[in-house]
Amino acid sequence: MQRLEWLAVVRHGLSTGNVTAQEAETAGLESIDIPERDADVPLAPEGREQAEAVGRFLKENPPDLAVVSPYLRTRQTAEIALGDSGVPVVVDERLRDRELGVLDLLTARGVQARLPEEARRRERLGKFYYRPPGGESWADVLLRLRALLREIREDHPGARVVLFAHEATVLMIRYLTEKLSEAELMELAHRTAIANCSISSWRGTEPELFNSVAHLRREDAPHTRQEDVNAEPV
């Protein structure tokens, strides 16, 4: 199989939906009041600032190609981060966020209160294989990501590629790149909250960064591999 010289994945910047969802969870509400469809949720002002910080990182680590989720918040993140760099951009629907089906716009409390049978089914099947009605399991998302990565490697051997995607996508790219087991992926998901505009990267097959936010703290901060062990479930 062809290899890339460098692969990075950036979670989109803080979105208005992220803010509203956190407020709903904190307030103990059952539903999340987001007016847009998921694909149309934009960046919050802080998210735009985070994307600018990613741009500074990419100036020091220039990619040959950017592949971007079609969702508005990821496209905005990529547009701000790449600026006038001239990096070719491909929008690919296989990088879209996981589709939640009947669980969409429900908080954790809302799922328990309104869909208790689904909550029990999810508990029995586990996060990897549980597919909400009208939605996707993690295994479903991995099928499209696996195909995308294979295509990128075949079409751009030896290239430096950055992906702009979503929270769960970052974890799944690591699963595929490092050939993790289901148990290892679920343990990682349990203890790691993927930060907005964090960067995870690999040189060839060697891990380099994971969930790094050093570039968000200050412009000249060192970039080191790190994990957030005070994690919220994905």
Rank of each mutant, 00 (worst) to 15 (best):
S69Y: 02
V213K: 01
L142M: 09
L58A: 04
E151C: 07
E187L: 14
L7H: 02
D40L: 13
G13C: 09
P222K: 11
E117F: 01
Q76D: 08
L95Q: 07
M186V: 08
M1P: 11
V91G: 02
L14T: 01
L58F: 07
N211K: 03
R218G: 04
R109I: 07
R150V: 08
A193L: 14
E184H: 10
P45M: 11
D97G: 11
H190M: 11
M172F: 15
A139V: 05
W202P: 10
L216H: 04
S200K: 10
A193R: 13
R75S: 02
G158N: 09
L103P: 00
R56N: 10
R48M: 12
L143K: 12
V102Y: 11
H12C: 00
R120Q: 10
R75Q: 06
P157K: 15
E232V: 14
A81W: 06
E184V: 02
Y71P: 00
D40V: 05
P233K: 10
I32Q: 03
R3Y: 10
S212G: 08
D92K: 01
N61K: 00
R121A: 13
S200W: 01
S69E: 03
R121F: 05
D228Y: 06
L209D: 12
R120C: 02
A108E: 14
T74F: 01
Q50T: 10
T107A: 03
K59L: 13
P62R: 08
V111N: 01
R124L: 13
S85D: 05
I194T: 02
S201T: 15
N230Y: 14
R96S: 15
V67Y: 03
Q112G: 06
L209I: 12
P42E: 09
L103V: 07
P62E: 05
G126S: 00
L142D: 11
V9C: 07
E99Q: 13
P45G: 10
R3D: 05
L72Y: 04
A51R: 00
L143R: 11
D38S: 09
V111Y: 02
P233F: 01
E178P: 10
L148E: 01
G110Q: 04
I34F: 02
A53T: 07
D40E: 13
F57D: 03
M186D: 14
N230Q: 15
P62G: 07
A53G: 08
T77I: 03
M186L: 15
R48Q: 12
S200I: 00
A44D: 14
L14Q: 15
M172W: 09
R153V: 07
T224S: 12
E60K: 11
V161I: 11
L95D: 13
P62Y: 07
G126T: 02
R37C: 04
T205F: 13
A81K: 13
D92S: 11
P45L: 11
L209P: 14
I173K: 06
A53V: 02
E99A: 14
E46N: 06
R225S: 15
H215F: 02
T177P: 02
L115A: 04
H156W: 10
G13P: 10
C197D: 00
R203N: 11
R121W: 05
A183E: 15
G17L: 00
R75W: 00
D33P: 06
R174H: 08
P45C: 09
D155L: 14
